[in-house]
Simulated scan of single mutants.
Amino acid sequence: MAGYFSVLLVLITLGSGLIWLLDHFMYAPKRKERIALAQGSSETPLAEDVISEIAPEPAIVEGAKSIFPMIAAITIFRSFIFEPFQIPSGSMMPTLLDGDFILVQKFTYGIKDPVWRSQLVEVGEPERGDVTVFKFPLDERIDFIKRIVGLPGDRIVYRNRQLYIQPNCTEGQTQQGNLVCGEYNKIKLDIVNRDEYKQGSMQLVRLTENLPGVGHDILINPQALEQTERYYQQQGTRRDEWVVPEDSYFAMGDNRNNSQDSRMWGFVPKANLVGKAVFIWMSFEFDNGPDSLLPGWVPTGVRFERLGNIQ
């Protein structure tokens, strides 16, 4: 089921629309009859204040008529077209930063009803490299955002901070993009810099990871130990290897040593997909220190250079 806010929007839309319809077909004609009778017995046209006294429109009807068009437009836009999200953590750095406000394209992976989230229309499937918002499989009240690196049937290995992919190929297929079928393809990494980001006192290495058709930057902490003991153990595979089930996806954060993702809890079911993150429409800095008079949630600056499409 969708979140409380989505359900509330739908209920307000349905409630205000129903009140408007009932009034339009049942009560408004009766008010018009009373006004017509009063007008017929008067020699001069009735003033507006007199009409409102003869056949007053109930406040609930007036309110429903005023909010229905606006709330219906918001519900349609948010449920089927775009939904805004705020990035609350650094698990997708450097692609997305804490304080980024993004738009998620809802119809990319199909049109779903806004309450029960059942599929209404099939539109498309996630592609490798998509930055995707989904309902956290272990608690669907929580929205997660990660990058899709494994498609159904793929074999994924993450070992020594290096990603390997054996793609799920059809019979007779020898290559999928730049991935060779039947082989564990080592995903190429190119160093960008070593001094742009820190985790505590440790420098993070920024690299470009070249997924098929998608080049994107990731962060690696070369001093951090791989926490393989926390990895999700899939039956029949090694600790750091996973086979993506049908109608599921393997998702990882770009901040590889600071991300709770499919390595720790498993796969993202297709039914949990919310949409594709496509645009940063605002980005705030929150640098209020412990000695600041302002609370931590008050922005200290705007990062205009970050606004634009998400890669």
Score class of each variant (00 low, 15 high):
residue 24 H to Y: 11
residue 108 T to V: 12
residue 170 T to H: 07
residue 28 A to R: 04
residue 211 L to K: 01
residue 117 R to Y: 11
residue 58 P to H: 10
residue 244 V to N: 01
residue 167 P to A: 06
residue 229 E to T: 13
residue 225 L to W: 00
residue 103 L to K: 00
residue 30 K to D: 10
residue 14 L to F: 11
residue 306 R to D: 04
residue 225 L to T: 14
residue 97 L to C: 09
residue 158 Y to K: 06
residue 205 V to W: 06
residue 217 D to T: 09
residue 254 D to A: 07
residue 275 G to D: 11
residue 288 N to M: 09
residue 26 M to Y: 14
residue 221 N to T: 07
residue 117 R to A: 06
residue 32 K to M: 11
residue 268 V to G: 00
residue 252 M to H: 04
residue 209 E to A: 00
residue 204 L to M: 14
residue 74 I to H: 06
residue 307 L to E: 02
residue 148 I to M: 10
residue 260 Q to Y: 07
residue 268 V to I: 12
residue 121 V to I: 15
residue 119 Q to P: 10
residue 280 I to K: 13
residue 68 F to K: 00
residue 47 A to D: 10
residue 283 S to N: 12
residue 23 D to I: 09
residue 199 Q to T: 07
residue 282 M to P: 02
residue 124 G to Y: 13
residue 297 W to Q: 12
residue 29 P to G: 13
residue 209 E to N: 00
residue 264 M to N: 09
residue 167 P to E: 09
residue 139 D to S: 14
residue 53 E to T: 09
residue 156 I to V: 15
residue 148 I to T: 14
residue 184 Y to L: 15
residue 293 L to F: 09
residue 249 Y to A: 00
residue 41 S to W: 00
residue 241 E to F: 02
residue 38 A to Y: 02
residue 12 I to V: 15
residue 227 Q to L: 11
residue 10 V to F: 13
residue 271 A to W: 01
residue 90 G to D: 03
residue 274 V to P: 02
residue 21 L to P: 07
residue 132 T to Y: 04
residue 224 A to P: 06
residue 122 E to C: 01
residue 138 L to M: 14
residue 272 N to R: 08
residue 277 A to Q: 01
residue 192 V to H: 09
residue 271 A to G: 08
residue 128 R to E: 11
residue 217 D to K: 02
residue 118 S to W: 15
residue 284 F to V: 09
residue 69 P to D: 06
residue 220 I to K: 03
residue 55 A to R: 01
residue 52 S to N: 15
residue 239 R to D: 10
residue 88 P to W: 08
residue 87 I to E: 01
residue 236 G to D: 08
residue 5 F to K: 14
residue 255 N to Y: 07
residue 49 D to R: 09
residue 179 L to I: 06
residue 74 I to S: 04
residue 20 W to L: 14
residue 281 W to A: 04
residue 60 I to G: 02
residue 30 K to G: 06
residue 154 D to I: 15
residue 145 I to N: 13
residue 270 K to M: 08
residue 226 E to M: 05
residue 59 A to Y: 05
residue 308 G to C: 10
residue 269 P to E: 12
residue 310 I to G: 12
residue 104 V to W: 03
residue 218 I to R: 01
residue 39 Q to S: 15
residue 16 S to M: 02
residue 127 E to M: 12
residue 30 K to M: 13
residue 158 Y to H: 11
